[in-house]
Structures are given as C-alpha cells and as structure tokens.
Design a protein around this nucleic acid. Structure first.
Length: 479
RNA sequence: CGGGGUGUGGCUCAGGUGGUAGAGCGCUUGGUUCGGGACCAAGAGGCCGCAAGUUCAAGUCUUGUCACUCCGACCA
C-alpha cells in the first residue's frame, strides 16, 4: 500500500526505464554528484567508500602476486605519446591537451594521460639494463582522462579512476603468463569481491587495445542483458620496447627487447555493481565492498535502555571487524529502512524494546528481506555468516541470470532475431573475418565481446557467412 | 558528432494572450512521536541555466550558448 507506492516513487523502476533507474541510483544513493565539467563526476563519501574498498581488495591481490605500486606523472609530452604508431592512432581522438603554462604557450604541448603505457616505457628504458632488472611488476592507482563525447556516471566519464598495471619481462612466455594470470585474478576478484560472474576470453583484432598484440577481457552481463567490459589485460609484445628502445642484456650477453603487459580495472566496476545487483528499491552491495556492511536501527530510542543496548551491539560488531553504522537520528524507523535499502547496506539490525526484553535483535538481509532473530550475545558471531550467505545468493542469482541469457545460435536469421528480441549474449561460431564482425555490428549494433576458450560443440560454420569457423565468440550489445 | 527531451528555492513541479514569483516535499528551531517513509507550531531560503536582443516592462517573446538526459555513431 502506502509502503509500496512511496518506495517505487523514490526511484524509477528498472522495468520502466533502466537508464533512468541507473542514474537515479547513482544520485539518490549518494554515490556521486555531477560536477561543473561535463563527464567529470564528484565521488561522494559513499561512492568513494566503495571505490576505496575495491582498491583495497585489488591492491591486496596485486601485492600478493609480487606487484609494486608507483606513480607516473599526469602529463605526457606529445612526442612521447607518438612513439608507438598504433597506440597514438587509437587514443588521439580522445586526448585532452595542455597548451599553456600561465600565459605562455608551451614549446611542446602536453597530453593529459589517457593511459600510461608510454610513460612506463620511457621509464623502463631508463632503468632496465640487465636480465637481473627483470621482471618489473608495476602498478599505479591514478585517474586518467579520455575526452568522451557522451558520458554517464561511472560507466563513461571523461576522467575516471583506475589501476593500471604495467609489467616488463625477459621473455614472451613470461609476459603472456602474466597477462593470463592477471585475467584470472580479475575474474576471481569479480566473483569473490563483487559477486559478479564474468566471461573471460580474447578480444578480436578490431576490439583489442591500441598497440597490443593480444587483449583479454572479463565481460559481465548487466540486468538489462547488455555487456560491460569489466577489466582487460593486454599482452603488448615487444612493439613498445622497439619503439622506446627498451633493451636488456640477457644471460647469454646478447641484447634483447623486453616483453610487456598492461592491465586495468576502473571505477566503471561500480556501474557494474549497480546494474548487476541493484533492484527497484535501490542498490544491493556485495559485503566485501560495502562501506557499511551492517546498519543498526534502534526503535523507540528514547525509551529506557534502547540507546545503550544499540550502542553496545554496535561496539560488539565493530570489535568483530565489521563495518557498522548506527542510525540513532530521530527519523521514523520506516524512513530509515527505505534509506539504507536504497544505499544497499547488506544487513539491517533492528533493536527495540520488545527485542531487548527477549535479549535479541532482528536481522534483515537486503537482497531477500528475510528476517531473523539474533540473540544479542551472538550477533557479532552470526552476522558474518549472514553476509557470506548474502554474497553467495547474489552471486548465484547473477550467474543464473547471465547463463539463462546466453543463446546458442547457428544461423544468421536467428542471430538477428535473437539479438533484436532477447537481450543477452549470443554464443556463435565465427570465421575470423573482420567483414563478418563489421556486418554484425552494422546490422544488430552488437559487437564481439570475446572469443571463448572452448569451441562450441556442433557448430563449425561462421554464423554470418557460413564459411568454416575458427572461433566461438560471445556477441552482445555493450555499454 | 547527429536526433529528441529538460533547465524556475535543496528536490518535484505550477506560473493562458509580457506587468517584477508560488505550492508540495525537504531544511532550521521548539514540542509530541518512533516495530515499514509521523504530527503540531514558528521560521529560513529564488539576480527564474547563462548571454545578447525586442519592449516603458521579459520566468514568459527572438537568437545564441551551456549543462543534464535519452536514442544512435566512437570508446574502459
């Protein structure tokens, strides 16, 4: 009744207008605000809190695998950016330039980094001499700028936050291994930290990173069936090394070019969290990256003992290492429920006079709204298992949702029809020609998302032209 | 960059044929409340996106511009 009406009024429903639902969440959950520069968003404390936790989760994994953090400058001299031909061509259209310092025009204009391959290369050329200097396993946490034409919060902003890993290796094998290892790390991160299932695979020639030999990707499916490129790892070969003359003396005393990789996950992943897990009442955050895993709401806080018991509960939860917020403001309880649901806080604990009599509190899970009574003295021990269960549920739900919308298609007519009528991915064979790929894009607006590891059983001819197929490809419309 | 939509207190919007700005919600203070978005009372808050133009007079008409938003082309 009144309840439902008001809750639906708060944000647009996903059914009604998914795009608007998305922006409503970003603003209403206070993840971000628009700034006065188009395409540049302000990360508010709650949104930044999520990014901080994403960073922590990833950074821990990077450190565990031997990577070190560094910081490169914000600017790239024009000449440096232009050293690798494919790379410049790929990025030139969206580069922002600094032309003046004060009133004086610069002798050479400076590009605001759209990515830092060239900066790392320039540095590597400086510090790498011997095989003993390798590998270099560097990463940096920075923002980069790409002057996009159309922008959306998190999904496509002109300035975005990310990590970019850049590694240098003595051999191709080692660099390729790093590229694949980081892809696995990304997939594991998405599953275990963000509860988002991903497909992984190789990008086609036309979709790969400018300057890379190979680009690998993790692709996630959003609630509306569209794909989100959630992270990429690139095997750069020795092309950059040749362009920047990065050589080392190998064990056999011969000069060799290094082999490089780069890989990144951006603040776009926050958009993924929203569009995979969110519902019509707001966000649903995976516990690992929820700024508050638990909200404690005292009921009738003015009544005797309630405030004290609530504070005590919060202390216990915090002592157990949980991220907890106490809302003892004089809002109505119902208002608070809706508010923290909007913000996607995984677990809500209600504690009122009736509970205190029974020595318990009520736990409500954000995703399914299931209520459970928790004895106060066991709450801190039980909440972690509630969080784990929530993580598993939202992961399984997302996984089923994705798997149920992957369609195996063998004919072109079916391909067009499926892409038009049923949102999701199509798994279909491909001959490898760019013409066929271009035709798909032209006629369906879908793109090849990635080349799957395994071939599709049974289908061996290209879904577009009918010639013998080389690959099985996932196709989809993408953000 | 093409096509559509929208810009008026913090938010959602109202302001026929031009005459110097309103409502609801929110906010502040005090009080009563509190198990799914409470109530009473008293307050604060707006050069109407920006810039030109027409006019005695522009939120209102003209032109330009900017921002947001949606749909396409390009990208994480």
């Amino acid at each position: 009744m009144g309840k439902n009406e008001k809750m639906v009024q708060a944000i647009t429903s996903r059914e009604e207008d998914f795009s608007r639902w998305y922006t409503d969440i970003c603003l209403r959950a206070e993840l971000c605000s628009y700034s006065s520069v188009k395409g540049c968003i302000i990360l508010r404390p709650y949104g930044y809190g999520i990014w901080e936790l994403i960073s922590c989760e990833l950074d821990r994994r990077f450190k565990e695998t031997g990577h070190q953090n560094v910081m490169m400058p914000l600017f790239i001299p024009e000449g440096m950016l232009q050293k690798e031909k494919d790379h410049v061509e790929g990025f030139a259209p969206e580069v922002a330039w600094v032309t003046h310092g004060g009133d004086e025009q610069l002798a050479e204009r400076l590009c605001v980094r759209p990515t830092s391959e060239t900066l790392f290369c320039d540095h590597y050329a400086d510090i790498i001499e011997s095989w003993r200097d390798l590998p270099k396993l560097y990463n940096q946490w920075v923002s980069v700028v790409r002057w996009e034409k159309t922008t959306r919060p998190f999904l496509r902003t002109r300035e975005f936050f990310w990590q970019e890993g850049h590694t240098a290796h003595a051999t191709e094998e080692e660099a390729v291994r790093e590229t694949l290892d980081m892809l696995d790390l990304y997939a594991e991160f998405y599953q275990n930290a963000l509860a988002i299932p991903v497909l992984r695979g190789l990008k086609s020639e036309s979709e790969k990173f400018a300057g890379a030999v190979n680009t690998y990707t993790v692709e996630a499916m959003m609630h509306d069936g569209k794909a989100l490129q959630a992270g990429t790892t690139h095997y750069l070969g020795d092309g950059f090394a040749r362009a920047f003359d990065i050589q080392f003396t190998d064990k056999d005393n011969t000069l060799r070019y290094i082999h490089q990789t780069s890989w990144g996950i951006s603040s776009r992943s926050i958009g993924g969290i929203i569009m995979v897990h969110g519902d019509d009442d707001g966000l649903i955050l995976p516990p690992a990256v929820a700024p508050y895993q638990v909200v404690v709401i005292p009921i009738a806080a003015h009544k005797q003992g309630v405030g004290e018991k609530a504070a005590e509960l919060v202390d216990r939860l915090k002592a157990a290492g949980l991220r907890v917020i106490l809302d003892d403001s004089d809002r109505m309880p119902g208002w608070k429920y809706a508010e923290y649901e909007m913000k996607g806080v995984p677990i809500r604990l209600e504690i009122g006079p009736r509970d205190i009599e029974k020595g318990q509190c009520i736990a409500v899970s954000r995703d399914n709204r299931e209520k459970r009574e928790l004895p106060l003295d066991q709450a801190a021990d039980l909440v972690p298992s509630l969080l784990e269960a929530l993580h598993d549920r939202i992961y399984q739900k997302a996984k089923k949702s994705m798997e149920s919308r992957i369609y195996d298609v063998e004919s072109w007519d079916r391909f067009v029809e499926t892409m038009e009528k049923t949102p999701g991915f199509i798994r279909a064979a491909w001959c490898g020609s760019e013409d066929c790929e271009a035709k798909v894009k032209e006629e369906t607006t879908a793109t090849s998302r990635c080349i799957a590891d395994a071939k599709v059983p049974g289908s061996s001819s290209c879904v577009v032209c009918g010639k013998p197929a080389l690959h099985t490809v996932f196709w989809g419309k993408a953000y």
